[in-house]
Nucleic acid binder design. Structure first.
Lengths: 231, 231
DNA sequence: ACGCTAACCGAATGTTCGGTCGGTACACAA
DNA sequence: TTGTGTACCGACCGAACATTCGGTTAGCGT
């Protein structure tokens, strides 16, 4: 007896790589990209370590062993995902305004574009930001991510030296607040909500850069000298 | 042959509950709290799902089976940890200035105190913020956390209605930016660094509340509006 | 000296994990 | 018709998992 044509438990039926001639029994075949997309969604729901290959198989509507026809294993899925996220983030640093522009403007550009990348590659970046370093794959990704953070911190320091950041706040702290806020988007931002990315990017950069730009006596305690942030 | 008195692999020797009379072979016994402290540290390093009881045992300098003398199992450790974090956070909401104070002032208080709680209970809050909902314990904790977020959002809406938040930014977005930034502290703040908690709390509240309070010329150019200061 | 209990251990339990293997079904080309 | 490649499957494997069990050891009250 042939395989049951509808053992599906999942919600596909209109998927990307439909075999040109109606394949087998209306079941669109997976390629690495469409499989990765589903896998990353499950990783983000249950956590990478909390997800079993059986969980993936169920969501894909495949058997466990079929996954290994498309990818070498669980860790390759992780590698593909975080590489995609990191490549997108580094592209932001390398594009941008010319290096002779003011650091303040360049920093603002990096923040805004990072918000856009986060929104566009949300599942992949989410997975990246939740790594623990339990395998070599994870440690290499974390190392690349630290490199990114470091280059942003450099930019913040240069912006502070220009006077673009109020001098009662340490530039290291400034860059951590900046990218802490940006990265925290993965915890709540959903592209299907009714908050468009440009609005989000406008509001976030406005709030943070205005708050960071000028000396303020806006609180119960007037600004006191700021401590240093370590790496 | 008795148990090897020093099979330890860990870094204890000066621990909390030292048996009054020098116990056994210089080995301080664990109680639930000191064991929990170590366990939560390991959970945060490797992730809850990525941590095996063997990992815990190694760090504790105990055998796997000994852990079950102190707690019912892995999940109870998680429960103890997240309950501690949630209790500390809700205490912030329930203490605070009297309910007849302006919402803006109360919101500012909640943000500042939350920073302090995050710093004081850092490992426990970190574990809480990284849950996925894979077990009933996790789902209940996430529900309590949503309740917290909801009460903060209410406060932000009231603050906006008072005019404490610039009206070109949705109060829901404001509360997400606020607590996104606060929660992102777990990703980088380390109490053993040289950034004191009061300085951190001052800087964070100053940047965010100044950025949120004044109407901005939120264009593409670096912010340079002259603003009035509220509060 | 005795029994009690807290604190611990090594060995084993059943289960779940990521991954392998030998196949089948089918489209398509020769 | 036969052969080839893609997509898939059920059955299985060894390792790792959380947990249990039957102990042993040492201090304390009596």
């Amino acid at each position: 007896m042939g395989p049951d044509p509808f053992p599906c438990d999942n919600e596909r039926m209109s998927n990307t790589p439909i075999g040109r001639p109606a394949r087998r029994a209306e079941r669109p075949a997976y390629d690495r990209d469409s499989l990765l997309e589903v896998a990353v969604a499950v990783f983000n729901e249950r956590g990478y370590d909390g997800t079993g290959m059986e969980d993936l198989a169920r969501r894909l509507g495949l058997s466990k062993s079929s996954i290994y026809h498309h990818v070498a294993g669980k860790e390759e899925l992780l590698h593909l995902a975080v590489t995609r996220a990191l490549d997108a983030l580094f592209a932001v640093l390398d594009e941008g305004p010319a290096p002779d522009t003011s650091a303040t403007v360049r920093l603002r550009h990096v923040v805004r574009r990072s918000v856009e990348v986060l929104a566009a590659e949300l599942p992949y970046v989410t997975l990246l930001l939740r790594l623990h370093g339990n395998s070599e794959t994870e440690r290499q990704a974390l190392a690349r991510r630290r490199e990114f953070d470091h280059r942003v911190a450099d930019l913040a320091i240069r912006a502070a030296a220009e006077g673009g950041i109020r001098d009662d706040i340490d530039p290291h702290l400034a860059s951590r607040l900046l990218f802490g806020t940006v990265n925290s988007l993965i915890e709540w931002y959903r592209p299907d909500g009714n908050l468009p990315v440009p609005t989000l990017a406008d509001s976030l950069t406005a709030v943070l850069f205005e708050g960071l730009s000028r000396q303020g006596a806006a609180g119960a305690d007037p600004g006191r000298p700021s401590g240093r942030v370590q790496d």
